[in-house]
Design a protein around this nucleic acid. Sequence first.
DNA 1: ACAGCCATGTAACTCGTTACATGATTAC
DNA 2: GTAATCATGTAACGAGTTACATGGCTGT
Lengths: 205, 205
Amino acid sequence: MSQDIPVTGYAILGLLTFGDELTGYEIKQRADVTLRFYWVSPAMSQIYTELRRLADHGLVRADSRADGGRDVTTYAITAAGEDALRSWMDETPAGFPVLKHTVLLRLLVGHATEPQQSRRMLHDYLIELDQALHDLSEVRESLRGADGHGQPFRFPSLVADWGLDHFAAEARHARRALESLAETDSETDSETDSETGGGGGRAAE
Amino acid sequence: MSQDIPVTGYAILGLLTFGDELTGYEIKQRADVTLRFYWVSPAMSQIYTELRRLADHGLVRADSRADGGRDVTTYAITAAGEDALRSWMDETPAGFPVLKHTVLLRLLVGHATEPQQSRRMLHDYLIELDQALHDLSEVRESLRGADGHGQPFRFPSLVADWGLDHFAAEARHARRALESLAETDSETDSETDSETGGGGGRAAE
DNA sequence: ACAGCCATGTAACTCGTTACATGATTAC
DNA sequence: GTAATCATGTAACGAGTTACATGGCTGT
């Protein structure tokens, strides 16, 4: 029946379970602050496409009203939508997370360029991680006060904490890799040297 | 010039920097054991498509020879391919990793179904993580002996260690979330006098 | 003999993106 | 008045998937 809904559709459906009626535009904004960390932030056009599909399936109810001179459409999840979401969660396996980690992909073939390029990349990544940690922290703070047991933001808080830890771990890994590459660098001039470089590592920055 | 190559193309190019000439089939196998953890494991058809494109751009050299009754084509990276890979790594920003984490997506909207469903999902995820950790450990072990400074598997080892830590962290997060959900559960029946479904089974680990 | 792996492709299709187009409201 | 934000779409396209098709080689 409603088997042919892509995951992003369920993600949007999920955003609508938090109570409010939202416009496509607002859904995009919510996705930008939360969904983007664990899934993706779909393009506007994709959101409208998906909302159309969900409406066709009766999973959301579209309310168009003229707000002044423009037509604004808000969307709310229907009972059928809640059913569909639940059966998706209960019956289809979640599947293993997919990581499209360009930083790791490049590090994997680090021998294809100068080590300093890998270090630069890791350094850039650390800066971006800092930003992500900052953004996600703000989200997490905004959930406080309603993150208790039966409260509305219990699950989002759980997920935000997971995400914060994840980014912190990424930063640790990036720093560790940087240290390791710093050793490589100071050894570079001494040509092929097979002994383990535990000794005189130099401070990076 | 060669601007229009998707990341997967560079990933394949990267696999070819480790020395051997590979067939499309072999590239798929290598991708299945390494790339899949940090990028994706492309479908066979995608690999052949990409190899065609890389060959058209002169970034790989295709060697077709008749091996018995069948035509087997092996691919090797060219000097132009090495240049292209290096300038991609040096000149284009890596970008923030994209995480398509269906488990977290579902946990985010955990209020849309029974808590036990979220727990089941996390439990399943832990099992899959175990498998991933096992698989990646084997890869990591296979790199030992050539993971030193100037050695061929230095970077893959760095990345494998990163990945192992990443999966270990994921397992920690999943367990923490499970504990948190277990609390929720035990509070649920004492608070409201709703009927308790199954006889108070408490399995934990 | 038959299953399973090796090996290579084509075709149809879907998700999602970028670019383009439109227009109204709000803030400076 | 003009820039930013709100709001909604269409069109072209690209990456990647599944399904299909083919056939040789290898081990039992």
